[in-house]
Design a protein around this nucleic acid. Structure first.
Length: 576
RNA sequence: GCGCUUGUAGCUCAAUUGGAUAGAGCGCCUGACUUCGGAUCAGGAGGUUCUGGGUUCAACUCCUAGCAGGCGCACCA
């Protein structure tokens, strides 16, 4: 239940009725009319901007129009206690106390589904995220996008949408060749005692390759390790499988499970690239031509040549993009086009890609291809996750320059754990660089949002525990003949905004909004809790008992915190 | 040079999808509690929302021209 939507509709109905009597002129579309919680200081419950929106077309100033409209609204709803009109022309409605009691009543009936937008159409989403090369374990750079995607999927699912989480495995191309070569040389190091060429820039030097080499030696005793050419195909798939195992283990420890892993190699093998290009060729988006050397780059190795190009410049890209390399192999872009055709063929309403900041320049070209493939605009939305700056001892925590030596997901897990990683990665909008302070995330203070929110839940749980009740069990109450105080109503107002928070998060695909909301709710709750220190009447328990209104009140708050924590994917402990 | 992105309190950032006197945390200054109702709370100081122009009843938000930082500009992935 969303009381704002309800009230918005009510107001629109009043306006329509009024316009039929000739008292009001309405525009063709009733857009931009809001119903929302006004700032606390105005001490009212719902506020609307109708008078300001309609003032021009009615040739009346907002204040006098507000006067007229507020009478109409007041007559319409018996629950209204008083209406006030504030400066630019806001109409602020204050309800009788029963309004919030009624609100609470519906929440108890509806506790499982509170926050879900039932009026919105169910959509099919495909979220592609992480998609790191299968050449080694995940590091901290992958982590933010991984959590962003996972929580985005959670919140869309919470709002009743159908979501598929997908990982695109780039197991084709030069990187994989170099990686396989590196594994091979590590094998030779172990079997034939040949030193690994650690200074070769093209190779992967990380120690984890030694483990991969050992695993392959142990499980593939029949392989002839003497000849790279003879075993290269088999070794490629063995190596990427091993690397993917490491990645899946990392994802798992972060609580992330993809539904599908789509292999680039398979797409190429099944001729999907040719099919996609053929498809675009028929639409005249493919031609053979030359592109100019990149600007501002070291381009002395540039060889201009005739090649197969996609007309992404038709869609606003700087230049057209190459599909085929000099050796005849497909470019990364070409197979990615095929992959996106594959996605489109599976009939999703919305495709979402989560990319790291360093790949932002790629967005124009891939969304161009999706526009071309789908004959429409906006089928693909790309979200970029900005850098994470690691901070330790109040100083930037720099990664060592030696290639292959970086902070891994495992390192993070050992230092701070899953909950802290997930929660703190959502501490900021994904558009902004994020400070990840090792000392702060394990700190137990208000400065650490994870503890602050978890603590509010634990406090509620402690009340239930003291009463020998279970915080998770349902509450049944016969009589709702109680009213809430101003302090309590302020918290209920925040609760009433939960569905709106979910909606906006889904529309803008900004999961950090959940985290921000929970922090604000926790803050209101801690404030309220502390009132009980000086004033015993404000305590939840008196004489070892709790009143029904307070029991429900606590239950509702804990429900919302728990839903939010579930969406973010962190625990809500009952004891800390 | 071009593209994307960010610019809000001393610092790190929010801002109800264009609303009211722009809010939090940290830091600074007071105060409450002396605590398993335990990591908490109350108050104070701190702002030309990078700059100029425009749209609007209303702009941190949208448009436009700049300035500054970040990322990117391949036949790599």
């Amino acid at each position: 239940m969303n009381i704002f939507e309800q009230y918005q509709n009510k107001i629109k109905k009043i306006l329509l009725d009024f316009s039929k009597t000739g008292g009001l002129i309405l525009p063709n579309k009733l857009d931009g009319i809001t119903a929302e919680i006004p700032p606390i200081k105005f001490n009212s419950d719902i506020s609307t901007n109708v008078a300001m929106v309609l003032s021009k077309i009615n040739k009346k100033d907002p204040m006098s129009l507000a006067n007229i409209l507020s009478d109409k609204i007041k007559n319409y709803d018996p629950l209204i206690d008083e209406i006030s009109i504030i400066k630019p022309g806001f109409i602020n409605i204050k309800f009788k106390p029963i309004f919030w009691t009624n609100f609470v009543k519906t929440l108890i009936k509806d506790s499982k589904t509170f926050g879900i937008n039932k009026s919105e159409d169910k959509k099919k989403y495909l979220i592609e995220f992480v998609s790191a090369n299968p050449t080694g374990p995940l590091h901290v750079g992958h982590c933010r996008g991984a959590i962003l995607g996972d929580v985005m999927a959670n919140v869309l699912k919470f709002n009743n949408h159908n979501v598929t989480k997908e990982y695109y495995v780039n197991d084709y191309g030069n990187q994989i060749k170099n990686f396989t070569k590196s594994v091979y040389l590590r094998i030779r190091e172990i079997v034939f005692k040949e030193p690994f060429p650690i200074n070769n820039e093209d190779l992967y030097p990380g120690d984890y390759l030694i483990d991969i080499a050992k695993n392959i030696i142990n499980s593939e005793k029949k392989l002839n390790f003497n000849s790279f050419d003879e075993i290269s195909n088999q070794l490629t798939s063995l190596s990427t499988t091993e690397a993917l195992k490491l990645i899946k283990k990392n994802l798992n420890s972060l609580g992330i499970n993809h539904d599908n892993f789509i292999s680039e190699k398979e797409l190429v093998k099944n001729n999907e690239v040719e099919k996609a290009i053929e498809f675009l060729q028929k639409k005249n988006f493919i031609y053979s031509g030359k592109i100019k050397a990149p600007i501002g780059e070291d381009n002395k190795n540039w060889i201009e040549r005739e090649q197969l190009l996609f007309k992404s410049s038709d869609f606003g890209d700087d230049k057209d993009r190459a599909l085929q390399k000099g050796d005849g192999a497909w470019t990364y872009f070409a197979s990615d086009v095929a992959y996106h055709k594959n996605k489109l063929d599976r009939k999703y309403d919305q495709l979402i890609n989560i990319l790291g900041a360093d790949h932002a320049g790629y967005i124009k070209r891939i969304s161009s291809s999706v526009d071309a493939l789908s004959n429409s605009k906006g089928k693909l939305i790309c979200k970029v996750s900005q850098l994470v700056k690691l901070i330790k001892d109040k100083k930037p925590f720099k990664m060592s320059k030696r290639k292959g030596d970086y902070i891994t997901v495992d390192d993070l897990m050992n230092e701070v754990g899953k909950d802290a990683i997930r929660f703190i990665m959502l501490n900021r909008s994904s558009d902004v660089e994020l400070d990840f302070d090792f000392d702060n995330v394990i700190e137990k203070s208000r400065d650490n949002p994870l503890y602050y929110v978890q603590y509010s839940y634990a406090r509620i749980a402690s009340v239930f525990r003291n009463l020998d009740k279970d915080i998770k069990s349902n509450i049944k109450i016969e009589e709702y003949d109680f009213y809430y105080s101003k302090d309590e109503t302020n918290i209920l107002k925040k609760i009433s905004e939960w569905p709106k928070c979910i909606d906006i998060t889904c529309q803008k695909l900004e999961p950090h909004r959940i985290q921000t909301y929970l922090y604000e709710l926790a803050s209101l709750f801690h404030s309220y809790w502390n009132l009980g220190k000086n004033n015993p009447e404000k305590r939840f328990i008196s004489d070892e008992k709790i009143s029904d209104d307070k029991l429900i009140f606590l239950k509702i708050i804990s429900n919302v915190i728990k839903s939010g924590m579930d969406i973010i994917g962190v625990s809500a402990p009952t004891k800390m």
